[in-house]
Amino acid sequence: MHRFFIQHSQIQGKRLYVEGADVNHIKNVLRMKPGDQVMVSDGEGMQYLCALETFDTGRVWFEIVDTWEENRELSSKICLFQGLPKSDKMELIIQKATELGVYELVPMVTGRTVVKLDEKKAEKKNARWNAIAESAAKQSGRSLIPRVAGVMTFSEALAYAKELDVLLIPYEKAEGMEATRRAIEGIYPGQSVGIFIGPEGGFEEAEVEQAMEKGAAPVTLGRRILRTETAGFVVLSMLLYHLE
């Protein structure tokens, strides 16, 4: 069954409406008709089984058939700070990180980042990345859509992460899986977590030291060096297993 996201303000009594790009998708791609049912989430844990009622200017109105609370989110808010990778790898990272339960993604420019984005390109990329997050959230049955923040420098990302409870930075020179195990198992439900992943080529040593000064714990992900698009998934999978 198709799933859509709305704001709570779009619920009006026993009806709700969907707007934006979803209107064209419902009308011209899915070719839905009155009576067809969909799932709708308000991003706050409430789920709605709805039947299509009518098409209006810029909106599709649905009758609410059933309502229940179903929170499919992790008990901790996880923010993935991702060094910008080359090509379209960022799209894959956003899609899969959304499926794994990430709460927010922050693209970063670090010392070894190859990709260069001017302001116009960055805005265009960000719009596409958020659309990918929304699509992945619908497909995976998320209760909310992860936010993809604007591109930050490494220093800006560290400042942005200062309010998070736990910071982890996988680093190829870190040793001892036991330390990684302790770091993961020391996280308890409700704590917010930041994961810093470098681009191709990894972090510079000065960046790791800078992150450690801000409280980040360097961890190893094993004896093999992982690609930038793999490392984040590994940490997210560890946290998903631990928290659920």
Rank of each mutant, 00 (worst) to 15 (best):
S237V: 06
V114C: 10
E53G: 06
L168V: 05
L243K: 06
L74T: 03
M152F: 07
K125V: 01
Y188H: 15
L100V: 02
K125M: 05
T153W: 01
Y17H: 14
P199D: 03
A127F: 02
V102P: 06
L16S: 08
Y17M: 07
S75L: 08
I64L: 00
F55C: 08
V23W: 05
A174K: 01
N71F: 04
F4D: 07
D56G: 13
Y160M: 05
E172S: 01
A122H: 04
F233R: 10
R147G: 11
V23H: 04
Q139S: 08
L30D: 12
Y103I: 01
E207A: 11
G186A: 06
G232C: 07
E229C: 12
L92Y: 14
E209D: 15
G45V: 10
V166Q: 13
F203L: 01
F62N: 05
P170T: 00
P107T: 08
S143E: 09
E175R: 01
R181K: 15
G83F: 09
E19D: 14
N130L: 08
E207D: 13
D36V: 10
G20M: 07
E123V: 05
A133Q: 07
I6C: 14
G83Y: 03
G141A: 02
Y171P: 00
A206N: 14
R112Q: 06
T98F: 09
S9N: 12
L52M: 15
I94M: 11
E163S: 15
D56A: 15
S76Y: 00
V109G: 01
R112C: 06
G186L: 04
E70P: 12
F62K: 05
A149G: 09
S155L: 11
F196Q: 06
I225V: 14
L105F: 11
A122V: 04
S135R: 02
Q37V: 04
G198R: 02
F81N: 00
V102H: 03
M39G: 10
A216P: 07
E156R: 12
E73G: 02
I187Y: 00
E134K: 15
E104P: 02
H8Y: 08
S237R: 06
G58P: 13
Y103L: 00
P170Q: 02
K96R: 13
V148F: 11
G186R: 04
V148E: 10
G190V: 06
V234Q: 08
A122Y: 01
I6P: 13
E207T: 12
V114T: 05
G20K: 08
A174F: 00
Q37E: 14
Q12T: 09
Q95D: 10
I225D: 00
S192E: 03
M90P: 10
W68F: 15
V65G: 04
Q82R: 11
E200Y: 00
E104Q: 12
L100Q: 05
K89F: 03
L74Y: 02
L92I: 11
D118G: 04
G13I: 07
T230L: 07
K214E: 15
G111I: 01
T228M: 12
A159D: 14
A133S: 09
Y241D: 14
M238Y: 12
R142S: 10
M46T: 15
G13H: 07
T57L: 13
